[in-house]
Amino acid sequence: MSVEKIIFYVFAAILIASASLVVTTRNSVRATLFLVLCFVCSAILWMLLEAEFLAISLVLVYVGAVMVLFLFVVMMLDVDYAALKSGFVRFLPLALVVAGLVFAAIYSIVSSVHFGLEAYATPAAHPAEYSNIKELGMLIYTDYFYPFELAAVLLLVAIVAAISLTFRGSRERKVQKPEWQVAVNRADRVQLVKMAAVKKEQAAPASDAASE
């Protein structure tokens, strides 16, 4: 067994184990940390596929940035885990049957008969100086420029949608208008109200009425 194969099996096993722990563990902070482990393992699997750039960006972007933010959110929110898990046992048999059927269907198709090494030969390894990023860049900015631009529009829509759904503040910009400030008269701001003298026990309601 070659070294690559050993690495693949070890990290694939960790990946599957941590992925199932993400959905089964009770503590959501732990679930998030297991998700981080998932990403790290899949980054290593990508590394085996010679997709170094993708592997590194997965670690940097997802593990380094997105998951940390996610961890903050999970720690701040008070999620009712009991309510989330309710119905889990009730639906488990049905879910297992459906999952079993789907697995059987997928297994019968994606088995070694159709997708074995005979059908798909091992691709030739690239030389050491082969640059992943350069190839990716060439493809993105030439052949795939249209989907690339579309993905950018998609992000813009996500920003617009997120802001429109969460922004609750005032929509008006607050500006000073100097000409209005200068033009202010005493009569606009101050009003003198003539009041009759009142006795002390009636003072409270009378002053209320006056201040209105």
């Binding site: 795939y144 989907p147 579309l150 993905a151 998609l154 429109s164 759904l165």
Partner: peptide, 30 residues
């Protein structure tokens, strides 16, 4: 984009662009 897409990628991106906008519009009335 969807009806003019001729690759799975562009068709999918068009669909997501449409769906994402619609999700937000459905939720707009808070």
């Amino acid at each position: 984009v969807m009806v003019s897409g001729y690759s799975f990628l562009t068709i999918y991106l068009g669909l997501e662009l449409l769906s994402l906008s619609l999700y937000a519009m459905v939720a707009m009335r808070r």
